[in-house]
C-alpha cells in the first residue's frame, strides 16, 4: 500500500468537488512524509500526511496552526480516505481533543480485537466486554491502563476545575 493507493481512492472526491484544489507535496527522501493538501474555495482545508510505518495523519479546518501535530491517525488508506471525504462534505474541523471510545481508539491504532485480546491474555469476547464497559463508564482504571499499554500508549488522567486549574492525576505506575 502506498500513498498513491490513497490518492486513487480520492478520485470520486475530486470529481464531486471540481472546485477544490488538490496538491501533493513529495518528500525529499523516500522515508519522508508525503503530504496531500485539499483547499476549498470557502477557506476550509484538509491536510493528510503519510509515511511508513506511522500511517495517515489528518488535520482539517479553516486555520492550520504552525508546527502542530496531526489531529487524527488512520492505519489504512480506505479508512483515511473515507474520513477525508466526510470532512470535506461536512466542513467539520478536526480536533485532537475530541474524545473517542476505546473501540474507536483501537481501530485508529489499526488493531483488531483478536490481536489485542491475545496480547492481554483474554478472549475476544472478554475484550469486547471491556470495550463495552468502557463506553458505559464502568471500566476499572487498571484494566483501562493495561488495554492502552497493549496499544502501545500510556494512560493519562487529568482533572480540570472551573477556576482554570488543570492537573494530571497520578494512577499507578
Amino acid at each position: 500500500m502506498t500513498f498513491q493507493t490513497f490518492l486513487s481512492l480520492l478520485e470520486p472526491l475530486r470529481a464531486e468537488y471540481p472546485e477544490a484544489e488538490f496538491e501533493v507535496s513529495e518528500p525529499a527522501a523516500p522515508s519522508g512524509f508525503w503530504i496531500l493538501s485539499i483547499d476549498l474555495p470557502d477557506g476550509f482545508s484538509v491536510e493528510v500526511e503519510w509515511k511508513r510505518p506511522l500511517g495517515f495523519g489528518i488535520a482539517a479546518g479553516p486555520n492550520l496552526a504552525f508546527g502542530e501535530g496531526v489531529h487524527e491517525v488512520f492505519a489504512n488508506a480506505p479508512d483515511a480516505a473515507a474520513r477525508v471525504a466526510h470532512l470535506v462534505a461536512t466542513r467539520t474541523p478536526t480536533s485532537a481533543d475530541v474524545p473517542v471510545s476505546i473501540a474507536q481508539l483501537r481501530k485508529l491504532r489499526g488493531r483488531m480485537q483478536k490481536e489485542v485480546a491475545e496480547a492481554l491474555g483474554i478472549s475476544k469476547s472478554g475484550l469486547s466486554q471491556i470495550e463495552t464497559s468502557a463506553a458505559m463508564g464502568t471500566v476499572q482504571i487498571d484494566t483501562l491502563q493495561k488495554l492502552i499499554e497493549s496499544l502501545g500508549g500510556r494512560l493519562k488522567i487529568s482533572a480540570t476545575f472551573p477556576d482554570g486549574m488543570e492537573r494530571r492525576v497520578s494512577v499507578g505506575h
Binding site: A28, A29, E68, G69, V70
Partner: peptide, 21 residues
Amino acid sequence: DGWQNDGRMYPPKEDRRRSIS
C-alpha cells in the same frame, strides 16, 4: 518524536523536507 497534536509547536524535521529542495 511525537506525531499527534499535543498543543505544542514543533520545528520541521528532515522528514518534512520537500523534493523541490
